[in-house]
Design a protein around this nucleic acid. Sequence first.
DNA 1: TTGGTTGTTCGTTC
DNA 2: TGAACGAACAACCA
Length: 275
Amino acid sequence: MPELPEIETVRLQLEKVLPGQTSTKCEVLSTKIVRGSIDKIVGKKVLGVERKGKVLLIDFGPELQLGFHFKMTGQLIYEEDGKRVVGGHPTEDFLNKMPSGHTRVIFEFDRGTLFFNDQRLFGWIEINPKFVDKLGPEPFQMSADQFISSVRKRKKPIKLVLMEQGVISGVGNIYANDACWEAKVNPRRLANTLTAKQYHDLFEGLIKVLKEGIKYGGATAADAKYIDLHGLGGHYQDHFRVYDREGEECLRGDGIVHKFVLGGRGTYFCSKCQT
DNA sequence: TTGGTTGTTCGTTC
DNA sequence: TGAACGAACAACCA
């Protein structure tokens, strides 16, 4: 499920191929995921590729940014002269001929074609999405004091606050779980009850796991081995601290990783070292 | 077969 | 008012 590091990985790749190209056609195969009319970009030139939290933005001008939200199963595939750039949720579609049964919108440019695929139709594409205005800063844009002051007054479990996009943008389930482990914080702890050291450790931990996520090109689900064989998808999954490690020994060597549901989401932690 | 899974959206409650 | 909480959404897979 694409979070900040996964989206950043796509952005870095698209930034190398899209800027300078003009949009020539925009074909919507599934109207459900498209908000408003996105064909305003046709005839316009790409100035850059940006990202705010988990939203990817193709920049066609100051008042014309095409926003993509991948939700759980969104992916982008860019094709030019038989060469491919892929990103987002890793599936066999990375290897399949495009368009596939999951292709929702096709964007044609001067030199290549961009396919937005989404299995579950949860993602969306919108011009100047209002959603980004509601986003809080990314961890990378915050100071430790800023992080602490925006978190410490909240009275719900710390892990859920980390995932609130209006407070901190870009953090999803994988990295929220791993950041709590880094800081030895029980994800259930109410956000206003951490020690001063835990607030600092949590901020540092969050930065650490996100940077590592970007370094490894994001995470690929354990069942996507087929994708990995072809050198596609990221490798952060080989560095998960607690996420998806239910029943395994804690990496600190004393304790077992337990799983429970918090806020309706799978939550992993070591009851020995996370307090 | 049915339940688990996922992030945002939206409705309800306090 | 705003915060907290939980269901809904779609489709795949075990």
